[in-house]
Design a protein around this nucleic acid. Structure first.
Lengths: 200, 200, 200, 200
DNA sequence: AATGAATGAGCATTCATTCAT
DNA sequence: AATGAATGAATGCTCATTCAT
């Protein structure tokens, strides 16, 4: 059994950190099953047993990465709740800002994002929590009268999450578009729809 | 695509079919790596080597399932191109119908859908092709004046695909909502958006 | 169990013959273990089970080929015993003739020869029997005064067999030299040796 | 050539050595295909996976044994080139000595020799190289006037190699004759031939 | 005379994990 | 803090062979 509660000196701390980084890359590139401990550890210049000095198991480090992603994402979402009483004009700006922040986080943490959103078997749960938070935000905004009252915000949240996932995978991580741009397009689409009658 | 050089009678054809079905379920439940050939064939009442009578390898049957999903999805999407000159009123009905068909297909082929959309490493490519077809459909509709001209249809297609994926995973396959309902909500959201100014 | 004692019609006889030929080639090219029944039989346009109509097993057909080679080789060697009372002058001619016959047989039956001499685990025994026959022939010739009396004919026979094997593998089957030529060189070497004192 | 990237201490070095020895025996007795990794390692008191700590694959260790045999044989042959200007009387003694050394090497490395000469699919190439070296040695000796000028030394080398192979298989490895004896007989035969006219 | 269908038996290889040092 | 050495457990795949038709 490994010693997860072990006291660590500076060197150990550094090794642990390096393993985390290497593992993030490895899992992101090869997926959970094809990722090899031996490969992770050799990138850092250590041998296999050293891995077990810092982590219980392959699964354990993977879960740690999942959690890391999830908690950072959560922090980000929490911040994005709109304050009450903002002007209607500011609305789209604020939402756009929130989305931009999320995309920027994804872009700055490509590998971790790939793990959390696309590789982890827990991705469904991760997305669910994400969806719930968004739903709450949207509901608040709907009560404030910013949105149509006859739209199911839970459904909108699911949709928004879907769009974010897809956009992230195909346009963001590939480098085709930048956060600002994507955020703007999403807001436009979700606020005004496609109908030619809403042409500005 | 059976093993090259092997002739098959009715019994063999049946066995092959049964293996396909069992494999679809196995891959859907356990993912590619954890799926076991032994498990697949034993469901059918055969032994391991029999598998290799009908398929080259584990990878080969998986690819066959991927292709099966993709080609069926493609057929479905092709059919959904709107004819020219329909009334504006019919538009949303027609789109709703198309979405409903897709969701119904997903629902009737849950396991295959899970493989094609969520398990296959090719899912990105599958979604890309799907997106391209949708883009084409949308562009035709945009030229016909049904949609705002200042919206990037490629982006809308990506978004739509994202929504379809997410909705499928969280609301459709879980049995929470039915195709009709989901199709209607999507159309409403995408056509009119959230803005309270578009409240009907 | 197969039916080796089975009555066969003309068609069966033909199939059996074709399998023998295909098997000879297959074993010659790939060795015993890598040779595949499926491969043999498909060359003939039959399916695997048909093989067992004519042969007990993979091992059985291989043994049959071994025996075929051995008995043909034996016949050849028996014929080459020199008649008594030939002139000393004729001696080398007669030996040369015998060797030429052997090489011609090898050349006309390349695949079978490869099996008998180089592939079969029984090749040692085959060569032993061959050696014994040659020893007998040589002893008769030695008693007749053709050869030095202070040379061990058993040893000479072993040597001769060794030369024949090596020459066959490296110069004959590869097509570099012809039987006549090889036979002549061997006779020259074995009769007169290398010593410059025997220079003619 | 150990597994790339693996460091080894004294214990590992020892294990590797033991596996080499066990493998040599196993391949020699059962041939390449019937030799089992499990059998090899269990002789050493290790389990299957340990094998892969020291060797890439079954094929890799076999090739290593082939190379080992070949390089040792080459060293031996190189040493046996006769110095210039030796007395004619010494000639046969020197050749006899060389042959004796080779036979002694074979005898001391029975299993390795069986692999290199009789089991390896590369045996033909191994013998070819051996033949080339012998040819060179013989040519030098022929130029020095020790041998008849009208004999093709390449052919003699092939013959000599053939004799050595056969004698090794049937008389040496079986323990029937000793190196000294065999060397003497070969020299006698090759130098003076059988002809009763060369009777001493 | 031939074959479609199926299987038993076997074997190399991979990888996460442990432990004494 | 790190590692050399070793292993348990698992699994995909091959091939000769059988048998009912």
């Amino acid at each position: 059994m490994a010693r997860p509660g072990r006291r660590m000196g500076a060197v150990g701390e550094k090794s642990r950190e390096l393993i985390i980084t290497a593992a993030t890359r490895e899992f992101s590139q090869h997926g959970y099953h094809k990722a090899k401990i031996s490969s992770i550890v050799s990138k850092v210049g250590l041998t296999q047993p050293s891995f077990y000095l810092y982590f219980e198991s392959k699964e354990a480090i993977f879960k740690e990465l999942e959690n890391l992603f999830q908690s950072r994402l959560q922090d980000l979402t929490k911040k994005s709740r709109l304050g009450v009483g903002i002007h209607f004009n500011e609305l789209s700006t604020r939402i756009r800002e929130s989305l931009k922040n999320i995309f920027e986080f994804f872009l700055e943490n490509k590998d971790l994002t790939r793990i959390g959103l696309f590789i982890s078997p827990e991705s469904k749960q991760i997305k669910e929590k994400f969806t719930i938070q968004i739903t709450e935000n949207l509901l608040a905004e709907q009560s404030a009268g910013y949105f149509r009252s006859n739209v199911d915000m839970a459904f909108v949240a699911e949709s928004l999450v879907g769009v974010i996932m897809q956009i992230t995978e195909s346009l963001l991580l590939s480098g085709q578009k930048d956060p600002e741009n994507l955020a703007a397009q999403i807001v436009d689409l979700f606020l005004y729809g496609l109908s030619s009658s809403s042409e500005k």
